[in-house]
């Protein structure tokens, strides 16, 4: 990790110094442990603030939409896929970007750490695949692989799919990962079971829209939930309204979602929002052989019409 950050700083500093970019989007240390925060570095001298470790789960592509400057961006595999989606969807131009690719071995889900401790975590340090965590009254060394975000542990695109610079050597991609075991489990449920499952899943939702705000795909100037003419969705906490919101947001991500996990990471209530998006991600793969954000040449399958599109779903 140390090697990574040195290289990141070096590349970023050089880009800023040479005037190739107006700013670099990266991470700096947050005010709480395991909560690195995004930052915009505009001066070469400030690259010293940049950090890189397994707490950089936030998808930085989210900060690109509509920007006019020349930007250097530090990007994991999933970030690059969302950058690709952004390029395809006219959110940013490829020539505005210098992508500093970071091969990734997965990000830590801080909840998986905190649930092992009774008191608040004060410090967490990463070393050789382990994390040494201190809470107010305890200390433990945990294995990083046990703490990964769910999406990271099944990730098959850890390396950047598009980049101009690389912060480290490419890592080996995970093979033979069963990406959709959880989706299949839900698919196998009866209608009644599904109903209960989703009812329970969404019961804690407080409609804060953190999932939407964290999602790089949700860049519309006016989101459908904020519209009143027509009123697509009610604004209340009525379960029907909450469901409508989540269903429709998932559909908006169909064929575009890279399973970066930002939504789950952002949810203050710990809802597995990916339960929706993953089903559609799986369908896009099954029906169209499509993985989002792999090529700037192609638009997502639901954006295009081909006479030979699969239509087995029509009964």
């Amino acid at each position: 990790m140390l090697a990574y950050i040195d290289k990141i700083k070096e590349i970023s500093g050089k880009l800023l110094k040479d005037g190739k970019v107006d700013m670099v989007i990266g991470f700096r240390k947050g005010s709480m442990p395991m909560m690195n925060e995004p930052c915009f570095v505009r001066e070469a001298a400030d690259v010293q603030n940049l950090v890189w470790d397994s707490n950089c789960g936030i998808n930085l592509a989210n900060y690109l939409a509509g920007r006019k400057e020349k930007i250097g961006i530090i990007a994991k595999g999933c970030d690059t896929r969302n950058i690709v989606t952004h390029i395809v969807e006219n959110k940013i131009k490829r020539d505005q970007l210098t992508i500093i690719g970071v091969p990734c071995k997965g990000m830590i889900d801080r909840r998986k750490v905190s649930e092992r401790f009774e008191k608040e975590i004060i410090e967490a340090e990463e070393k050789n695949g382990s994390v040494i965590v201190k809470s107010a009254d305890a200390e433990d060394t945990l294995k990083k692989e046990d703490l990964l975000q769910d999406n990271c542990s099944i990730c098959i695109h850890r390396n950047p799919v598009i980049y101009d610079e690389l912060a480290a050597d490419l890592v080996e991609e995970q093979k033979d990962v069963d990406r959709y075991a959880d989706v299949r489990k839900i698919e196998a449920m009866s209608a009644g079971e599904k109903w209960r499952y989703f009812e329970d899943l969404l019961a804690p939702c407080i409609r804060c829209y953190a999932c939407r705000n964290a999602c790089p795909l949700c860049y519309c100037p006016t989101c459908f939930v904020d519209e009143s003419q027509p009123q697509w969705v009610g604004k209340t906490l009525d379960p029907v309204d909450s469901r409508t919101f989540h269903f429709l947001r998932a559909y908006h991500c169909a064929g575009r979602c890279t399973d970066c996990g930002s939504c789950v990471r952002a949810c203050p209530m710990g809802i597995d929002v990916r339960a929706f998006t993953k089903k559609l991600e799986k369908d896009a793969l099954d029906l169209f052989g499509w993985e989002a954000g792999m090529s700037v040449e192609e638009r997502p399958p639901l954006d295009t019409f081909k006479p030979d599109d699969p239509e087995a779903f029509i009964k």
Binding site: E89, N90, K91, P221, T222, R299, L302, D303, T304, F305
Partner: peptide, 21 residues
Amino acid sequence: PGICSSCGVCVSVCPYSAPSF
């Protein structure tokens, strides 16, 4: 145009090439 996000879905999806930027 006030709420268009310029994502280009319409441009891509239209079989008759009616939408453009």
